[in-house]
Nucleic acid binder design. Structure first.
Lengths: 399, 399
DNA sequence: TTTATTTACTCAATTAACTTGAGTTAAGTA
DNA sequence: TACTTAACTCAAGTTAATTGAGTAAATAAA
């Protein structure tokens, strides 16, 4: 028989249905805790009895916990309120960079409970995977959690994912990883489920699990790494595209016949508004910021050259944000990543958002652009958040 | 109790699960017909017995039909092949324009079985809804189908959907519709389930139901109407955004300080590459194409002014297509809509797609850009296809 | 030609998980 | 104090899946 195409969508049965319903309940409680069972039942389209069984299950799994009776002054028997049990499970997030391994642990509420950073001498697969494994084992030990309650390990690493003109032009690629299938390689080393994700998507999920997007289902995250990336969440789900390369915002052309970009285009956003672009811009003036703190200092000192760069970056970023608004129609766009808050804030302040945008409307629940709940650990925290997100979020839109 | 947010994701039970599984089976058969039950079971993650029950159900509903035994020269008992039953059900698609109502009927395979176009004198709600109702009733009558097998009616109409700067600047708005909730208004008039959609999204779905995208799960459709729109399908699902306005491609700025656009921006794509843009461009040369046929004639005659416009449109469209590729990472991008095939083909031939794109890779299953299975009826056919799509496509990604 | 194997399927029994309906408990209200 | 409302619990009933045993129809091997 010829191989026929499959969409990956499969049928349901009682067990898979229970799995789905558990996630539906968890996702509701996540966004609305504390919540009673009757309330959950109404919101999730289930009977009270079903919700009772499910919460009992989740309580046994230590994912939910009861938290007293509340009534808010209403009639009737006060509902037993359920909450996430932050101590019930945890996740580990790793950022693998060419020069370092950053490791974090998060409790079920997405709160950071551990972080560490070690330099990496050799980023080729064998030593790097070993180093990540060692760091994960240290994190499990240091977390103080029962290792059995580890939900999984998320790993953020630079591409290449697939063979495209852009991934070949990547600036922070790991050496000799072309032939390695990272997920299974890490799972073999670590012995827990592993998720691989790019930095921007992980950061976006992080904002939803425990950041400014906790009650947003549609948003974009513009990630300032060494380049510039985009993570998109629509209807609570990550957008990955057909080949996992969705969100390549860095090579949108913002200036016809602009700067030459290694990708082959001219005038890519990344050549104007990214960490690398900033360093290239400042170099002629003898300024060479290395760390995030250096960039923050430049803002604090109101360095005129850096402020000029911010103006330039904002000029190129503004129409791209308009494009994102018009294409994805998100509730908001979040800026963050490996840049200090002060830089992101300055950039946001300089944005000149286009008037011709579907986001330009009178009643808005949140601003068109927000700064993320970021910090230097964004990528590693996001990696851990991916794991939590996966255990919590149902993969169905609606019946 | 304060109103708590709901994602619209609800839990499952046996009945909803059956519904989902029916769609999973239908979607598999759609993409792989003819197919035997054992094959369906393997691909859909269900037991043979379950698939047997489901196909029996679907056969009774006249959505599937058996089509002989095939074995393709393999061992074992030949499987009874199932196919869509094109005569088992039908859908009606309507395009409501300020000046006309276009009505189509499609069988379950998405094939056009009826179409009609009547002028519309008065596009205000009351007369327009009445006119649509009359046309739908005519279509039911003329289709020759049992009215009970009508799955629903899709209606494509210009906005406004929500109150944004762009929808206010729309060029083809219907008068006095601000206060009307179109879906329930049409349902009341027609007595069947009604779906409202925009032209570009409907066209995209049409390509998936019975066009060049029938085996694509991730693609974009660039729709040339009076303006220019975008429909996006990811993982087989329509992307709508938080407020239903996703895909507003027309107001992406392609030229800094370019043409003034009614939306408030300068240099919007729509001011260069749209039907209106073409007419504005040609007017100074005394050329005034009215119909699609007029545009086709201009291509046939190799009219130098029109060819120059196509060059201009292609120049502005090319980077936007690169942007779509980088943001959505689709399998392909389809061009179509209310422009004759000859114009679309000429435009595609002139495109200069950016090298710096995740779509620029060596092994591709289909071209980066294709022409849609279009024709003048695209919008109305797409409206009907929405209905078929909805009855066929499961709304779950995967378990 | 006969036998074995493979594959597709049917029938009957079992099972998981949700719903329904009949109480029970605990609060506010008249 | 009695009534109402709301949140539950318990037991029975329902749906639609799975599982296991058996049958039918084809090719492949002996």
């Amino acid at each position: 028989m010829a191989t026929k195409g499959t969409t990956g969508i499969i049928g349901g049965n009682a067990l898979r249905n229970r799995d789905h319903n558990q996630k539906v309940v968890l996702d509701y409680v996540r966004a609305n805790e504390p919540a009673g069972r009757a309330e959950i039942a109404r919101s999730c389209g289930l009977s009270i009895q079903a919700v009772s069984n499910i919460t009992a299950d989740l309580e046994q799994q230590k994912l939910l916990m009861p938290d007293g009776h509340r009534t808010e002054g209403k009639r009737g028997k006060p509902a037993l309120q359920y909450r996430f049990n932050p101590e019930g499970a945890f996740a580990i997030g790793v950022e693998l960079r060419p020069d370092a391994v950053v490791t974090t642990a998060l409790n079920l509420s997405g709160k950071k409970i551990y972080n560490a950073r070690v330099p990496l001498d050799d980023a080729r697969p064998t030593p790097a995977i070993k180093a990540v494994g060692d760091e994960v084992r240290k994190a499990i030990e240091a977390s103080g959690f029962d290792p059995k309650s580890l939900l999984g390990v998320g790993v953020v690493m630079p591409g290449p994912f697939g063979d495209t003109a852009i991934s070949r032009a990547g600036d922070a690629v790991l050496p000799d990883w072309e032939e390695v299938e990272p997920q299974s390689a890490f799972e073999q080393e670590i012995g827990y489920p592993v998720l691989i994700e790019n930095d921007a998507t992980a950061a976006a999920v992080s904002e939803r699990v425990a950041g400014v997007a906790s009650d947003l289902d549609d948003f974009c995250f513009v990630y300032f790494g060494s380049g510039i990336g985009l993570g998109v969440v629509t209807k609570g789900h990550v957008l990955r595209g057909a080949f996992g390369n969705a969100g390549e915002i860095g090579h949108i052309v913002t200036q016809i016949d602009g700067h030459q970009c290694p990708c082959g285009n001219r005038g890519c956003l990344e050549t104007y508004a990214s960490r690398i672009a900033a360093r290239n811009y400042l170099q002629p003036f003898g300024i060479d910021p290395q760390s995030g703190a250096d960039f923050a200092d430049l803002v604090d000192q109101r360095n005129p050259h850096f402020l000029a760069w911010i103006d330039q970056a904002a000029k190129h970023l503004s129409p791209v944000i308009g494009t994102l608004e018009n294409l994805f129609d998100p509730q908001s766009i979040i800026l963050g990543g490996a840049m200090p808050d002060a830089v992101i804030d300055a950039l946001i302040a300089r944005l000149d958002l286009p008037k011709g945008s579907v986001a330009n409307r009178d009643e808005r629940a949140c601003p068109r652009v927000m700064r993320g709940f970021s910090g230097r650990l964004t990528a590693a925290l996001g990696a851990g958040a991916m794991v939590i997100h996966q255990t919590i979020t149902p993969n169905k839109h609606s019946y």
